[in-house]
Amino acid sequence: MDRRQLGRLVKLSWLSPSIIERIHAGDIPRGLTRSRLLEADLPLDWDEQERALGFC
């Protein structure tokens, strides 16, 4: 694993718990892929994350 990949994975540790629950339940917005999730420059605010990823 290289630094870039590790950095992307670490960012997911700040992912909104409600986003995690919805992904786990299979409730994923159209167009949200693994790649998009890993590449996204997500804000720390959970409401903003939901908007940015299409959960709102």
Score class of each variant (00 low, 15 high):
D2L: 04
D2P: 05
R3S: 10
R4Y: 06
Q5M: 06
Q5K: 14
L6P: 00
G7K: 03
G7W: 01
G7S: 09
G7C: 04
R8A: 06
R8I: 00
L9V: 03
L12D: 10
S13N: 13
W14S: 12
W14L: 14
L15H: 06
L15S: 11
S16G: 01
S16M: 08
P17N: 08
P17R: 10
S18Y: 06
I19H: 00
I19P: 00
I19V: 11
I20S: 04
I20F: 05
I20E: 10
E21G: 13
R22N: 09
R22V: 01
I23T: 07
I23F: 03
H24S: 13
H24I: 05
H24Q: 13
A25D: 12
G26H: 05
G26V: 04
G26C: 11
I28N: 00
I28P: 01
P29D: 07
R30C: 02
R34M: 13
R34N: 11
S35Y: 11
R36Y: 10
L38T: 13
L38D: 13
E39F: 11
A40Q: 01
A40N: 03
D41S: 09
D41E: 13
L42N: 06
L42M: 12
L42T: 00
P43D: 06
P43L: 15
P43V: 10
P43H: 08
P43W: 05
D45M: 03
D45R: 14
D45S: 10
W46L: 04
W46K: 10
D47G: 09
D47T: 05
E50G: 07
R51A: 15
R51G: 04
A52K: 09
L53H: 01
L53P: 00
G54I: 14
G54Q: 10
F55Y: 13
F55E: 00
F55S: 00
F55I: 05
C56M: 12
